[in-house]
Amino acid sequence: MINFRYHVVSLTAVFLALAIGLVVGTAALNGPVADSLKASVDGLSKDNQQLRQSVQNLEKELELEEDFAAEVAQVMLPGTLTGRRVLVVVLPSGRDQADGIVEMLATTGATMTGRVDVQEKLVNPENNSALMELAVTAARPTVPTDGLPGNGHGVETSSALLASALLDRTAGGTPASESDRRAVLKTYADEGYLNVEEPVTAAAEAVVVISGPPYVDKDATAKDDSVVKVVEQFDQHAHLVVAGNGSAGGNVVAQVRADPALSQTISTVDNANTIQGQLVTALALAEQITTDVVGQYGVGTDAALLPKLRQ
């Protein structure tokens, strides 16, 4: 019969053997394994430092490119639109880049006739009938309903009325009177469709429409189409440049470029969210007004970087 002392001695021997094995194994592996792990950690640390430095360099390069574009603007733009009457229309998605574009246009010497910010309510498909009725209510003697689109699209009809109030008339027509222009704007502003950021002082001969990415909500298609209707109607009365952010997904820049007719009369800029794009927006408008040349600019597919410099 195996006694208790035998069990104690056996267990002690087992644990002693395990302890000796761990000590010997650790001693044998500690050098190579530890060195390998340390080398891996050091390598990853160096890679991380290099990547961090690369990011910092790219950020610095971008900052310098923007500084360069801002300085170039002070050389290229002054005098390019002196005395030309320009209106700025800002769509709901274009708020972020509006101030930068307005600054560039001011540098050209253009006479800014005003800035109108379109509110989300105007492109909401639920307000189609209300916009049809409002076009009739807002009309004035020098801004009549004669000739307005009659296809039942409220945004198109109201945009046509607003364009005739804010821009020079085509076919030798006379501009709207100041009082009628103010009355039309007030009607739409009071109903929450527009916000007049800068008072409109005269009829414009050119307009910059500032947009952004496409809509992504359940009414995205209808809203994107409504934005195009706004642009189409303003294009009928004046030189027009659409300054946007991106050229895909159905936004107005993409739709203008895809339309054989609109792309012949409307210039677009797809990177107006950058200083470079804001500079090109001003150049594109100057090109269209002075030479009647239309172009598609930016970084998108088949877009030129900037208009050709002409003497």
Rank of each mutant, 00 (worst) to 15 (best):
I2A: 09
N3D: 08
Y6H: 09
Y6T: 09
S10H: 13
T12E: 00
T12Y: 00
L18G: 10
A28V: 14
G31S: 13
P32Q: 10
V33W: 14
V33Y: 13
S36C: 07
V41I: 15
N48Y: 08
L51K: 05
R52P: 04
E59W: 11
E63R: 13
F68M: 10
V86E: 10
L91N: 02
R95L: 03
Q97F: 00
T107Y: 05
T108S: 00
A110D: 06
E120C: 01
L122R: 10
V123N: 05
N124H: 13
N127P: 00
M132A: 05
V136G: 11
A139R: 01
T145M: 02
H153N: 10
S158W: 07
T170D: 07
G173W: 12
S177V: 11
L185F: 01
L185C: 01
E198C: 07
P199G: 03
V200N: 08
V200Q: 06
V208D: 03
P213K: 01
P214W: 01
D219K: 14
V228D: 04
V228H: 04
E232W: 10
L240Y: 10
L240S: 10
G244R: 02
S247K: 02
A248V: 15
G249T: 08
R257H: 14
R257Y: 12
A261F: 07
S267W: 05
N271G: 02
N273L: 01
Q276F: 10
Q278I: 00
L279C: 00
V293P: 00
G300T: 13
A303C: 00
Q311M: 11
